[in-house]
Design a protein around this nucleic acid. Structure first.
Lengths: 338, 338
DNA sequence: GCTATCGTTCGAACCGGTTCGACGATCTCA
DNA sequence: TGAGATCGTCGAACCGGTTCGAACGATAGC
């Protein structure tokens, strides 16, 4: 591989001149610039990333910490990742993807070794063990997912509390008096996934306010238990006229469950879900839902991260941005039969 | 951040001695090793990745080139990626994930700049434009997906031809005489995705051999067209007693289509698909299918890649490994009604 | 007692960039 | 015409590791 020394030699100038000709950080005569460019072209020169990182202490790489938990819905994760990757490239950064189960250790490794200029953490839990490491690191970080304590960090997430209120409001507004909310499996909550709690608590509070009897159920993670649980639900709450789903697996399984029982939405049951538009599209789900664009969260996180990387001087206050959810009406809800 | 110079100073030795104490590449007295280790510990020293890469010309990073094409089934992609990421970490490598649409350009960038020690290409097409770049690069690469010409490259893929034969054999063996094969949308084929062609051609040849009338159909990519197409199919081939699916979207949509028409598998129609076990599990698909573990392909590719990275001397012949598919019987096929 | 050997350590060079200070040439203006 | 500013370029130092060759003292061999 050609080095900048080779380029300089071929152009008949010193290494520093070649460097300045390429970076434009000092004025160099057009003549020399032309010769350097020609040399770069003919030698196929590309700067060595390691050497440049050493000299500038900038890697132009962003770390992306993903955690694949068995009970998370994987395709949604992919959406976040693509958003992150897209924007990073637009801004000139590459992505170092880390999927190790021990995220804290991995984060320490890539920041300590200066492999990256900053990191994006996906799947942040209430009391995420990566946060102390991130705070101690000399590098900026952006979170997707709202932890309990987010001081000193930039955080992006969907406003799950608002989503919970919206679902309840929607059904209550149509006149429903009793409904079931199917959440993620209980161990997701126990693991510290705050979004489940936030949606649940807001939904419960709103239901109390609106006079809706809301039954809380924690769904199953794996088929066929998911379907069985739904069937069981329908038996246990015969009076319920509304079904709220915050559980992708349950949403995917519901059509055939209803089919099998001869039920139709919204005729026999009003159904409203909470999942990403991508998910709804892939499965062609016929249910109204509170949607979010996970890639958008990824994009926002990277934009903010790069702002911090490139303007370390600016001690902007940290942001905690909660995106407003949106209800997409697919006609699966209606006023209950008297 | 502490450098090795700081460690050396703290331990009262020279930089080179500190380096050797850590790497063990020369014998160093136990006494000194202990002091160096203590210094590392107390200073929190971690070697700078850029500096090390510069000195050793090894980055300990593997490039992962992913292409997200609209009509590919994204979750499967994730499986490949996780397999790659897992094994890479086991072997001490990190992953630089690149998702740019222009894969050839991206590949050139990361290899020319020596950001990686080698690359894994996912989604390799018949005449992939990344291959010339890879062949010209000074770095080893491994492919997941079989291109037309794979000389000089290590390739891993499922044996789609065998999968096609297995599906046909299975139905023919049960006594079916007429069946429909639903493939990926036609533009997937035109884009150069060889696996569709290989499965199709092998299925057609085997059908001819076994005396099965096989109708070839190219499915739709997006809902609700997918479902409509299936409905249309059932009308157009009333004599067909078998349905072969090589199209995830169609497989996901089929249960409700059959339901709506009051058809049951295998009573009215024998169904056999071709998709990953992960996919079958997520959607709880009740169909027998030819399964593959995409993460296994990713793992194999990385293992082979690392072998080449670390033993560049060994000019082992290049491997083209096609995994044997496996038919998982879920009872959705039976002998046709006389 | 002198030399050969070995184990241990050090100094210096190198990897390939970037950047600072200096220097000569040209230009400006008094 | 000479002082001072400006422009373009160069040499050298530096980033933080690794590695080669040499030097050192201690031990072994004769």
């Amino acid at each position: 591989m050609a080095t900048i020394g080779d380029v300089a030699k071929a152009a008949g100038v010193s290494r520093s001149t070649a460097s300045y000709a390429l970076s434009g950080k000092r004025s160099i005569s057009p003549e020399v610039v032309r010769k350097v460019m020609a040399a770069v072209e003919s030698l196929g020169y590309a700067p060595n990333a390691g050497a440049r990182a050493l000299a500038t202490s900038q890697t132009m790489v962003i770390g992306l910490l993903v955690q694949f938990l068995q009970d998370e819905f994987a395709p949604a994760m992919l959406q976040y990742m693509l958003g992150v990757s897209d924007v990073a490239r637009e801004l000139g950064y590459d992505i170092l993807m880390v999927t190790e189960p021990d995220g804290a250790k991995a984060l320490k490794r890539i920041t300590d070794q200066r492999m990256v200029d900053g990191v994006v953490l996906l799947n942040v839990a209430d009391d995420d063990d990566r946060l102390p490491v991130l705070r101690a690191a000399q590098q900026p970080g952006a979170l997707v997912g709202l932890p309990l304590d987010c001081t000193g960090l930039d955080v992006f997430d969907l406003d799950f509390a608002e989503a919970g209120r919206m679902m309840v409001d929607h059904l209550a507004g149509l006149g429903h008096r009793e409904a079931v909310l199917v959440l993620q499996p209980e161990h997701v909550l126990q693991r510290g996934a705050g979004y489940v709690r936030r949606l649940r608590d807001a939904a419960v509070a709103e239901a109390a306010l609106r006079g809706l009897a809301l039954h809380i159920e924690y769904g199953e993670a794996q088929q066929p238990a998911v379907g069985a649980h739904l069937v069981d639900l329908l038996d246990r709450y015969p009076q319920a006229t509304g079904l709220l789903l915050h559980n992708e697996a349950a949403a995917a399984a519901l059509p055939s469950v209803l089919h099998a029982r001869g039920l139709q939405a919204p005729r026999d049951l009003s159904v409203v879900g909470r999942y990403s538009d991508e998910f709804a599209r892939t499965f062609s789900l016929p249910y109204s839902s509170i949607e979010s664009a996970p890639d958008r969260l990824g994009r926002l996180a990277v934009r903010q991260l790069v702002r911090r990387i490139e303007g370390p001087a600016l001690q902007e206050p940290y942001v905690a941005r909660l995106l407003q959810p949106e209800l997409v009406d697919r006609g699966s809800t209606a006023a209950p039969l008297a």
